[in-house]
Amino acid sequence: MPRVPVEERRRQLVAAAFRVIGREGFAAATTRRVCAEAGAPLAAFHYCFDSKQALLVELTEQTLAELVDIQTDGIVVGSDVAASLRATLREYWRGVEADPNRESVLMALTQHALADPKLAGVAEAQYEAYHRTARTVLETIADACGVTWSLPLGRLSRMLIVVTDGVTLAWLVDRDGEAALAALDAFADQVAALAQPIGDP
């Protein structure tokens, strides 16, 4: 049997870990279980990763990078600030509904990283990426609509993250998409009220 290149094997193991965690939770994601899911010998794991924690770090980084790209590409500029925020949040929501497993895995990774000293800094890096993305959304919409925000951008970014996290978690529990969209639309309107034309005092 031909030997699988290291980078290809790493990708296989990361993808396998993602599937196992999403389907069965962290407790099931042993190195043996991940290798079985990937169709790889157990020895391949230690050839590719120093530890299970190293695998989880790479899983977090890859999943986050994909999510950030999707959310940045999903910024929509409409006729005004409210329309832009509504459309952008609805585009975000389409991504959630299209791949709920990704959201479940990322939330599980956050909780696991906070509880595991060997993963120190992983949750912080995850939320730093969320903050950068939220700032990009708010800056892009403000620039396109010719407005500034009446609250500091860091505070608005945190509000955006808190609301999208909460709406997503609630939907993962009850799968009420209509309620989720209603909450996001209402939040978009509230944030739009914090915009003011450039030059206003």
Rank of each mutant, 00 (worst) to 15 (best):
V122S: 01
A123D: 00
A123P: 04
A123Y: 03
A123G: 03
A123T: 08
A123N: 02
E124I: 15
A125H: 05
A125P: 01
Q126S: 05
Q126G: 04
Y127F: 14
Y127D: 03
Y127G: 04
Y127C: 02
E128C: 05
A129P: 12
Y130W: 15
Y130P: 05
Y130S: 08
H131F: 11
R132L: 14
R132Y: 14
A134L: 06
A134C: 09
A134S: 13
A134W: 10
R135E: 07
T136I: 13
T136H: 15
V137T: 15
T140D: 03
I141C: 09
I141E: 02
D143Q: 14
D143W: 08
D143R: 13
A144M: 10
A144E: 04
A144W: 10
A144Y: 09
C145D: 03
C145P: 01
C145L: 03
G146N: 02
G146Q: 00
G146W: 02
G146S: 00
V147G: 08
V147Y: 11
T148M: 07
T148F: 11
T148S: 09
W149N: 10
S150G: 14
S150R: 14
S150N: 12
S150I: 00
L151H: 14
L151F: 15
P152S: 00
L153V: 14
L153R: 10
G154K: 14
G154C: 12
G154L: 13
G154P: 12
G154D: 11
R155A: 12
R155E: 07
L156S: 07
L156V: 11
L156Y: 06
S157W: 09
S157D: 04
R158Y: 14
R158M: 11
R158D: 06
L160E: 02
L160M: 12
V163D: 00
V163A: 05
T164N: 12
D165H: 12
D165Y: 09
G166D: 00
V167F: 01
V167P: 04
V167S: 02
T168S: 04
T168P: 02
T168A: 00
L169E: 01
A170F: 00
A170Y: 00
W171N: 03
W171H: 12
W171Y: 13
W171R: 13
L172G: 03
D174W: 07
D174V: 13
D174M: 01
R175M: 05
R175A: 13
R175P: 11
G177D: 01
G177P: 09
G177N: 08
G177E: 03
E178W: 07
E178A: 09
E178H: 11
E178D: 04
E178F: 10
A179E: 12
A179T: 14
A179R: 15
A180T: 15
A180S: 12
A180G: 10
A180L: 06
L181N: 04
L181P: 06
L181Q: 09
L181R: 11
L181S: 03
